[in-house]
Amino acid sequence: MIVFVRFNSSHGFPVEVDSDTSIFQLKEVVAKRQGVPADQLRVIFAGKELRNDWTVQNCDLDQQSIVHIVQRPWRKGQEMNATGGDDPRNAAGGCEREPQSLTRVDLSSSVLPGDSVGLAVILHTDSRKDSPPAGSPAGRSIYNSFYVYCKGPCQRVQPGKLRVQCSTCRQATLTLTQGPSCWDDVLIPNRMSGECQSPHCPGTSAEFFFKCGAHPTSDKETSVALHLIATNSRNITCITCTDVRSPVLVFQCNSRHVICLDCFHLYCVTRLNDRQFVHDPQLGYSLPCVAGCPNSLIKELHHFRILGEEQYNRYQQYGAEECVLQMGGVLCPRPGCGAGLLPEPDQRKVTCEGGNGLGCGFAFCRECKEAYHEGECSAVFEASGTTTQAYRVDERAAEQARWEAASKETIKKTTKPCPRCHVPVEKNGGCMHMKCPQPQCRLEWCWNCGCEWNRVCMGDHWFDV
């Protein structure tokens, strides 16, 4: 396979590697080409510095992935760790964990309700045991953590790749202090920090972006993250068709209702045909949960890209028209025109101005929308079919299609509260000796007794199943 190397943020060049090629071997190839010592090179990928003893497969490097290699003399205490030698983080029983690669970060837990604080980093599902597709590297999971809308060759929703760059020099040479644990960490600028490894760059702020994971991409090709779309790892039924499908869209209502993408497309087109989208002054033209839940309008309007190009163009047109109407304007009634106009409040005669090729020149009556006339309008008909009709959803289907309910059931079956801080902690095999993952707590306690870890627990039921 081919990976592209950008040395000291210059133009990239291809390097041929195998899945079992080590990072140090990659350094040696680059060092020979650039005429520099291999031990002064640092390989940066997806916000993480890659260790010498890791392989291309370990690092989730795919065909035509772009890695950054910078030349920086080692500072005291760094060289041993980078070589894969006596790194205290690798000691058996050590409590410190390697910062998780962005290629394996899962933010789907952050669609849980606000009262489930902490689960994004504490609760991990076991539903990723799908067998890898044919042709994928051994052991590589097909679980997708992110979804994007690819405006490039795909023109559809695709699995996405999370990447990070330095907000100062805009190069992907920043190593994160810690990985993101929720969508806010990724979507809110300057929320996460790190250290830029580019020479002479003092940058410390992280800037995240997404790429389409279905095809090789260049540095400049980015895609918009659709953070309401998630892999259906909890096997929730769709609120409309009641099938279990994946991926799904999880509405931001209190129940976190789930809808499959085909039904979401149908829901949007139906509402669009009836012009029953909601115009929100802050958000724009949007839709609420299909069950009509309060405070559930979709905030990231790129989710409506699921409509496809033709329907999305209609959505944008109707949204612009609705904006004009909300501002007190009118639409030209001549067939084939429909231009938005903003006449004076007491102006009865409205002319669709033909300047700049935008208007048709038609003069019409503001009251009856017919060709302009003197005197009273002959008839004014009330528009028919403008009443909002509820999208029919079966109550039982709505009850079963809740992301929140599956989460709470998982928590109930696989977790116990920490005796000190009461945060839910998952036990997935292993011994009875637990350690609270909350940095402010870190209590060592017994899963069996529910009390602080002691010699009695150690001698009596340390390794009970």
Rank of each mutant, 00 (worst) to 15 (best):
A120W: 04
G329Q: 03
L307K: 01
V157R: 03
E321M: 07
Y149R: 01
L331N: 04
E310R: 05
M458G: 15
D219W: 06
T177F: 13
K32I: 09
C212A: 01
Q40V: 05
P88I: 12
D86N: 12
I188S: 12
C418W: 01
G135Y: 11
V148T: 04
A390L: 13
E395H: 12
S110M: 08
W74Y: 10
S109D: 14
V425F: 08
L358A: 15
F463M: 04
E96W: 09
V157Q: 04
L187W: 03
T231Q: 10
G114A: 13
T222Q: 12
Q57R: 13
G292K: 06
A138F: 12
D346M: 09
P216V: 09
V290G: 02
Q347T: 09
S233W: 11
V350S: 03
L41I: 03
R191V: 08
K299F: 04
E321P: 03
S9W: 03
C212F: 01
V258T: 08
P216H: 11
K369P: 02
S384C: 10
T351Q: 07
V70Y: 04
T387Q: 11
P73T: 09
L261H: 03
H124K: 14
V56D: 00
T386W: 12
V224A: 13
G139R: 11
R366P: 04
C431P: 07
C365R: 02
R191C: 06
L325M: 07
K412H: 11
G328C: 04
V164S: 07
A401W: 04
G114N: 12
V244L: 06
S198C: 05
Q197L: 13
L61F: 08
V5E: 03
R348Y: 05
Y312H: 12
W54S: 09
G430H: 15
T83K: 11
L249S: 01
K299H: 07
L331W: 04
T168E: 11
L283N: 13
T103V: 08
C59A: 07
D18E: 10
K76P: 15
C263I: 01
A339F: 14
S167C: 06
G328R: 05
K408L: 12
G459V: 15
G336W: 08
V15R: 01
L297E: 05
A291C: 12
C59H: 02
F45Q: 07
P113Y: 09
E367H: 08
L272D: 01
L283T: 09
A230K: 15
